[in-house]
Amino acid sequence: MSLYYVQKFLFELNRSEELQARYREDRSAVLDPYELTEEERAALIEPDIGLLFHFGVNGQILMHFAALHKIEWSDYLQAMRDGVERHGPVREGVYAVTGYEGVDAHSAELGQAPAPPGAAAERAGGQ
């Protein structure tokens, strides 16, 4: 597991139009310089947003990667929720500090009402 290199690739991809062009051309080749596990390579090539979130990729980095792949905001949020449901809590990084049990569990923890239907769409407008 090498969250650092997963995030480093995405950080550099987000900043460089030239790297984005090469990524579009050959997703596998541009990953070679980075110390990645096969699982991480596959998630970056797919791309599997939910799995990347489960790895612990920071949302401030991941959201631009999703945008690069023209993934709509609400689909991006849902992909992260699905990833946590499928693979378990975020395993490393900022979001692993207290684990992540889902939006409604988090609301309950804060003494707040669960998100009403349609809230996901509303969230989709925010960052």
Binding site: N58, G59, Q60, L62, L77, G102, H106, R123, G126
Partner: peptide
């Protein structure tokens, strides 16, 4: 909770 599943909270 920016750019996470909790975005909007």
């Amino acid at each position: 909770w920016p750019a996470t599943p909790d975005s909007g909270k």
